[in-house]
Computed example of a mutant assay.
Amino acid sequence: MDTASTPKLAFTTIVSTLAYLGLAIQGSGGFPAFFSHPALTVVAIATLVMAGVGLVSAANLSAGEREDRGNRWVLAAFGIIGLLSAWLPAYTDRKGFWVFDGDTVRWGGVVLYIAGGVLRLWPVFVLGRRFSGLVAIQPGHTFVTSGLYGVIRHPSYLGMLVLSLGWALAFRSGVGVLLVVLTIAPLIARINAEEALLRSQFSGEYDAYCARTYRLIPGLF
């Protein structure tokens, strides 16, 4: 199996990662201010490591054999919220606006950020070429029902939420937490679109899988 991202996705990953960190550094008041916090230094390193790991995956932006193009608006929503999340938590941290007190919150955010990043990336390698940035059925598409997928159907999206919450808390930012909440609506729309497409492709087999698993959080959702 090919284990390298497509050039388009690799370019997007590199640019978006550098832009994300750049906005956070600018919001913090520059390099000295940002890296004066050991917790944020760890976050920056973890961000670069996660981006590097993602580059050697087989994730892609392919529309495959069949795509739900009506769901592409979600990518724009994620992009807008992502840009705000990159800059606003750092800025409010610097200004002391609506922040949680203490380095314990920062380091707790670091732990969540790294744990969420692992959970976000792990399914990328499990799914390989089936993992697309678009809601699409890929050639030879099958769905995984073992491991973590035997409990929850969208572990990567759960990782995305945990990672985003960790980022907000690393900056002690209440505004950042609010942005995580705003992410939930487009995320649910994305999940609904994916499940509808998979249900149309695999019919009763996918219905049976859904009946014995949770979408995101075991016992809750």
Rank of each mutant, 00 (worst) to 15 (best):
T6A: 04
K8A: 14
K8G: 11
K8M: 14
L9S: 05
L9K: 02
L9D: 00
A10P: 00
A10W: 06
T12N: 11
T13L: 09
T13C: 07
T13N: 11
I14W: 09
V15Y: 11
V15L: 14
T17P: 01
T17I: 01
L18H: 06
L18I: 13
A19K: 01
Y20S: 06
L21W: 04
L23C: 05
L23I: 03
L23H: 06
A24L: 05
Q26T: 13
G27Q: 02
G27C: 05
S28T: 13
G29C: 10
G29Q: 10
G30R: 07
P32D: 15
P32M: 12
A33D: 14
F34R: 00
F35P: 03
S36K: 12
P38M: 01
P38F: 00
A39H: 00
L40A: 08
L40Q: 10
T41K: 07
T41Q: 10
T41W: 03
V42C: 03
V43L: 14
V43C: 04
A44T: 11
I45R: 01
I45Q: 02
I45F: 10
L48R: 03
V49C: 09
M50C: 04
M50T: 10
M50L: 11
A51G: 14
G52P: 02
G54Q: 13
L55K: 03
L55R: 00
L55T: 01
L55D: 05
V56Q: 07
A58D: 10
A59I: 08
N60R: 11
N60M: 05
L61D: 08
L61M: 13
A63W: 01
G64P: 02
G64V: 07
E65I: 09
E65P: 06
E65S: 08
E65T: 13
E65N: 06
R66L: 14
R69T: 13
G70K: 08
R72V: 07
R72T: 12
W73R: 08
V74F: 04
V74N: 09
L75G: 08
L75W: 12
L75R: 13
F78I: 06
F78M: 08
G79M: 09
G79H: 08
G79V: 02
G79F: 09
G79T: 11
I80A: 12
I80N: 03
L83I: 15
L84T: 04
S85T: 12
A86M: 06
W87N: 05
L88Y: 00
P89D: 12
A90E: 04
A90P: 03
T92N: 08
D93A: 15
R94I: 11
K95R: 15
K95L: 14
G96L: 10
G96M: 09
F97R: 01
W98D: 03
W98N: 01
V99C: 10
V99R: 02
F100Q: 02
F100R: 05
G102W: 11
D103Q: 15
T104A: 14
V105E: 02
R106E: 15
R106S: 15
V110F: 03
V110C: 00
V111Q: 05
Y113L: 09
Y113C: 00
I114M: 03
A115T: 09
G116Y: 00
G116K: 00
G117D: 06
V118L: 14
V118M: 12
L119N: 06
L119T: 04
L119E: 07
R120Y: 13
